[in-house]
Design a protein around this nucleic acid. Structure first.
Lengths: 237, 237
DNA sequence: CATAAGTTTTCGGTATGCCTAAATACTACG
DNA sequence: CGTAGTATTTAGGCATACCGAAAACTTATG
């Protein structure tokens, strides 16, 4: 059933999956090429192979969609990646901006046995250090009830439950600005002429306002909450 | 200084090093081919590349020897491998016969940072679960004062300090026969006509005799001790 | 609805690392 | 000391995964 896929194959499948994890539209060849840092022609070839392997559906000039089998493979990779990130942070003292690259290398090398022993040691976590849901070994993805900060209207309040790990510089910047998972925020307003969003951050002993650049607002996810400033959600687990 | 070597390159270098770790003669092309499970012609090609990289000395039809740089690379790989084995046993509950293959995959994927953080977490061990010395980050190899069981004469007594991890079946067999690191043994005699070696094993509350097949006697290393039966060494650390 | 603009695929080519088969160099024995 | 036998290298090929350039197709526009 499992004929051992190459690292490249795993990366393609994972990237196709990642594209639709937080939105709906399927990925195109050139988007895939851009994300993988390869030429369009390389993608055309590889997508044909993935189709032969039964991992994707694709018709010439169309978008690329995972099959059920492809999705299963992708979830395996995502599980590996997020468990490895959790391990690196919890057990080896990595900071959250350092783990992504290391996990990308390791995820192609670990066995299923390793992954399950690691998961057990970590206590079968359902979230990684960036708040991303860790799929179970059976392929179930814990539901995440959150929205991008960029999609929230003024007045919305909530708690940060996910921050995309794709840009380590952004993570370092946020850490420096004392913005982490579980930070409570309220959207105050958007500055005029498409200026940055302003959020109020509740901290022990007061609050401060913070200008959120667009790229940051797309990377930070907030658990849905009531539309009235000052009224925060119950803390989750 | 470090132009990122391929996994294959790392495997060749490691295998060349391993051949001389417990003996003197340098490795030949066909021995290297046999150990790596590749054709002789593949070795010829690859050895040329290793020479171009400055990792080995080699003249046509001669043996293959590591350069200083090659030795440095090999020790890095050996350090990785043995620290990973230690981690798998100590932290993830692997048994000593399961770790070799897993470590062979992981050793090509981990970063130097990972290795050093892992070493720190493990308390900078100097031996792996099979008793093999773990080179330091600086390339120093802890001295091991032991000899193959097959090289000892009757009367020699000592403590098992190393068991080769190359054959998992052999490790399983030994575990089943209750023979581990730190087991005290005394060589009794060799059975006639090149029969197996017989060793006496001191156990809590008595001793038993054990027939040691040749392959086992080559895999088990005993810390040198006095040549008088019944006189065991002081326990080491 | 034709054509320009943009996207995707096809078509040679490159680099690794492996293979088998054939040629060449060593070595050891009669 | 020559030659048979073994060890090693060379030669030609295969698979993977990448590339740039050119051809084929879609889509958007006048």
């Amino acid at each position: 059933m499992k004929s051992q896929l190459s690292s490249s194959t795993e990366d393609y499948v994972k990237t196709i999956y990642a594209f639709t994890e937080w939105q709906d539209a399927p990925i195109t060849s050139s988007q895939l090429a851009a994300r993988l840092g390869v030429a369009n022609s390389s993608v055309s070839e590889m997508v044909r192979k993935l189709k032969d392997l039964g991992l994707v559906d694709h018709r010439p000039y169309g978008a690329v969609r995972l099959t059920e089998e492809g999705r299963r493979v992708a979830l395996t990779m995502v599980r590996r990646h997020r468990l490895l990130e959790t391990f690196l942070v919890n057990e080896l003292g990595y900071s959250w901006d350092e783990v992504h690259v290391e996990a990308e290398l390791l995820e192609h090398a670990v066995s299923d046995l390793f992954v399950e022993r690691l998961a057990a040691k970590l206590g079968d976590p359902s979230r990684d250090p960036h708040g991303d849901p860790i799929p179970t070994a059976e392929g179930a993805v814990p539901r995440i009830d959150a929205h991008r900060l960029s999609e929230l209207d003024p007045g919305h309040a909530g708690r940060i439950t996910r921050i995309s790990d794709e840009n380590p510089d952004l993570l370092r910047y946020l850490a420096q600005e004392r913005i982490f998972l579980d930070t409570d925020v309220t959207v105050v307003r958007r500055k005029p002429f498409g200026g940055p969003l302003v959020v109020r951050i509740d901290e022990g002993g007061g609050s401060r306002d913070f200008d959120v650049a667009d790229e940051v607002a797309d990377a930070v996810w907030v658990r849905s909450g009531p539309a009235h400033p000052g009224c925060t959600l119950e803390p989750g687990t």
